[in-house]
């Protein structure tokens, strides 16, 4: 029996799902609702921006964006299989996992150039 390499994508999928489940609602509140509700949204933006100056905060922000991206890619990839939409593995895998990687790289570039 050949060992499957699915654990790599499944780990990223699982980590993204866990992150979303635990801190997703809090993130939505802090980044969307608070900005809309607080008296001075610019001050809130400034606070969040200054928080992102620390490299560890940037890494955390990257994880919060990249892992859910892999989570989504993995679910869509297998969802297509369940819907009997088939194609070459390299093409579909490349599109979804490659897409998640490319978007994560773009996000990393942007975060570390702030």
């Amino acid at each position: 029996m050949r060992r499957s390499h699915e654990p790599i994508s499944w780990s990223l999928f699982g980590a993204g799902g866990m992150l979303l489940a635990f801190i997703g609602p809090g993130l939505i509140v802090s980044t969307l609702l608070l900005a809309w509700l607080v008296q001075d949204p610019q001050a809130l933006h400034a606070t969040l921006s200054s928080g992102l100056q620390h490299p560890l905060a940037r890494l955390a922000a990257l994880a919060v964006i990249a892992l859910p991206l892999y989570h989504t890619a993995h679910r869509l990839y297998h969802g297509l299989h369940d819907l009997h939409i088939t194609g070459p593995t390299w093409l579909l895998g490349g599109f979804f996992y490659g897409g998640a990687t490319a978007l994560s790289a773009l996000c990393a570039l942007w975060l570390f150039s702030l």
Partner: peptide
């Protein structure tokens, strides 16, 4: 574990 680890093991399940 080799059976679970295989493509035909747990990894073929998409949690329907």
């Amino acid at each position: 574990m080799p059976w679970l680890n295989a493509e035909e093991g747990v990894w073929s399940c998409t949690f329907v």
